[in-house]
């Protein structure tokens, strides 16, 4: 028996919004420690890694490890039927071929449940080693989203250059070029508005805008985002989901031919 309850459906909607741009379907691996998902986009250029800890749920029970393959468009149809303030309970029997989403209104006067067929998906799991990154940039998530959106107008790729002075995002194309520099903030009223840089050595890497923009769909999950970079390894874009876990995106850098 698997049962996981979140006080607000809104958070699950945000999680789904953060992954469904990149993935059509995905396997949710449920265990005692929580719900994990690791999946690559169709082109195998980027990867989503989601972790929702069991202690982040209002109620969590997982008697046996369970892998639930879900069509994310169908899951989105179901979550559309919930109000953000509804409680959501995800339920499945051991070895079941369906999962049930139950929504309860705050006053408990409306209870709805939706059953969805599960899918058997081929799992292609990548082993991602612990890595010490040359640069870790932390910044407001809305700022990162804005930069990605703005630079997409000027080129297909963004060059990210990180030094101890700051981080620079650049794009260029037929119409011209664009550069955005962010310095480390010296003092801020709110911690989530800070820009900070941990640097071992400077890094310059190029990434496809299309994927970066998909990653920013996670912006509503977290006020801050971190970008971890080293020469010639994939970028990690991480959003901490308060009291629940994290979502990480990996993106292979582009290589000049």
């Amino acid at each position: 028996m698997f049962e996981a309850r979140l006080i607000s459906s809104g958070i699950l909607k945000k999680v789904l919004d953060a992954i469904k741009d990149l993935l059509n379907e995905a396997t949710f691996d449920c265990s005692d420690s929580g719900i994990q998902l690791q999946a690559m986009d169709n082109s195998h250029v980027s990867l989503v890694s989601l972790n929702m800890r069991s202690d982040g749920f209002d109620k969590y029970r997982c008697d046996r490890n369970l892998s639930m393959g879900m069509n994310l468009a169908n899951m989105a149809k179901i979550l559309k039927c919930a109000n953000n303030t509804d409680t959501v309970t995800i339920k499945a029997q051991d070895n079941a071929d369906t999962v049930t989403f139950m929504f309860e209104s705050q006053n408990q006067e409306k209870v709805s449940d939706y059953e969805m067929k599960l899918m058997n998906l081929d799992q292609e799991h990548l082993g991602i080693p612990e890595t010490d990154y040359a640069c870790i940039v932390r910044m407001p998530s809305h700022e990162f989203a804005r930069i990605c959106r703005d630079l997409t107008q000027f080129g297909e790729s963004v060059v990210i250059t990180c030094t101890k002075e700051g981080v620079r995002f650049s794009a260029s194309g037929d119409s011209g070029s664009a550069n955005i520099k962010l310095a480390q903030t010296s003092s801020v009223d709110k911690e989530e508005e800070a820009v900070s840089i941990e640097m071992q050595e400077p890094v310059t890497l190029t990434f496809a805008c299309q994927y970066l923009n998909s990653f920013t769909k996670a912006t509503p999950l977290s006020p801050q985002v971190s970008l971890s970079m080293s020469a010639d390894v994939p970028l990690v874009v991480e959003y901490q989901i308060p009291d629940l876990g994290h979502i990480r995106y990996y993106l292979a850098p582009k290589i000049e031919e």
Partner: peptide, 14 residues
């Protein structure tokens, strides 16, 4: 021009 490698060229499949 630039080439877009896949993640499999950086990480091993488990």
């Amino acid at each position: 021009t630039s080439e877009q490698p896949k993640l499999g060229s950086y990480y091993e499949y488990e």
